[in-house]
């Protein structure tokens, strides 16, 4: 996509548009503001606006949940014929948190800074949403010997801490709010990866690393990291990250994916 854009000089065109600073001229602007105040003082709003306002509110407040709710669906479209899909499915699942709620700074622009190739996402057929994390099956890699997190989550605790009798129990139930938040976050990353938006993906990954340094999806995060770096054209870093991954998770089920990434020359 980016070649074609350059060839057409679209960046320059859009830059010209971006630089525009036209607006109402001062007289109009003053008059306008007076009108706004006058209307705002009226007891009843003109019809039609209410709906717009309601919708906007829904947009502002409901979006995090909406985003998370659809993350699963989005994720299904991500991998499109790639092994990444498998990992996407791994992190797909419930959860309400999205990183936009916590992100302190907005990510880099979607398009401008991103030389990533056109997303080859084809609206993928939905894949049966198996959830390997709750299924007993996947060869749970021997990572994270650390005990179940002792310190409470940063967020205000919503419910009493789960019983801490847990002996070396395998992975815990999906009702765990931290796990849900981790999943939601990585699901967003997966969507961004699928769309070729490496900047947003990397921001999400950083956010995940910050919030869940010892989270239960660190392995998946590491895989995504490889992919995101690749997408961003940071080939050397991607390669280093892949090698680190293979050393750290020698029995990971994601090895083939990461190995494939190692053999690719650059972003596809």
């Amino acid at each position: 996509m980016s070649d074609r854009r350059d060839e057409l000089g679209l960046d320059a065109l859009l830059a010209a548009e971006r630089a525009a600073d036209d607006g109402p001229d001062p007289a109009v602007s003053e008059r306008l503001y007076a009108r706004v105040l006058a209307t705002a003082a009226l007891p009843t709003p003109p019809p039609g606006l209410e709906a717009a306002a309601e919708a906007t509110t829904a947009a502002t407040s409901g979006s995090a949940a909406a985003g998370a709710a659809t993350a699963g669906a989005g994720v299904a479209a991500v991998g499109a014929g790639k092994l990444w899909l498998v990992i996407s499915l791994l992190v797909a699942g419930g959860g309400v948190a999205t990183w936009q709620a916590t992100r302190p700074t907005p990510a880099a622009a979607v398009a401008a800074a991103d030389p990533a190739p056109a997303p080859q996402t084809v609206p993928a057929p939905t894949v049966p949403a198996v959830d390997p994390l709750v299924a007993p099956e996947p060869p749970a890699p021997p990572i994270q010997p650390e005990p179940p997190r002792a310190e409470p989550p940063v967020r205000p605790a919503r419910r009493p801490p789960p019983r801490r009798v847990a002996p070396p129990v395998p992975r815990t139930p999906r009702t765990d709010p931290d796990l849900a938040a981790e999943r939601a976050l990585l699901a967003q990353v997966a969507v961004a990866l699928g769309a070729g938006d490496s900047a947003v993906a990397l921001t999400g990954l950083r956010d995940h690393a910050r919030r869940f340094p010892k989270g239960r999806l660190t392995e998946e995060r590491a895989v995504f990291q490889v992919r995101a770096l690749q997408l961003a054209g940071r080939t050397a870093e991607a390669r280093a990250a892949a090698e680190r991954f293979l050393r750290r998770y020698p029995k990971s089920m994601h090895r083939p994916t990461v190995q494939a990434a190692l053999t690719e020359k650059s972003a596809p």
């Binding site: 985003g67 989005g74 990510a107 979607v110 401008a112």
Partner: peptide
């Protein structure tokens, strides 16, 4: 030059 998540939040749309 808003990010994907910002746009999704502002318009009430899924990121995808």
């Amino acid at each position: 030059q808003a990010s994907g998540p910002e746009i999704a939040a502002a318009l009430g749309l899924p990121l995808n």
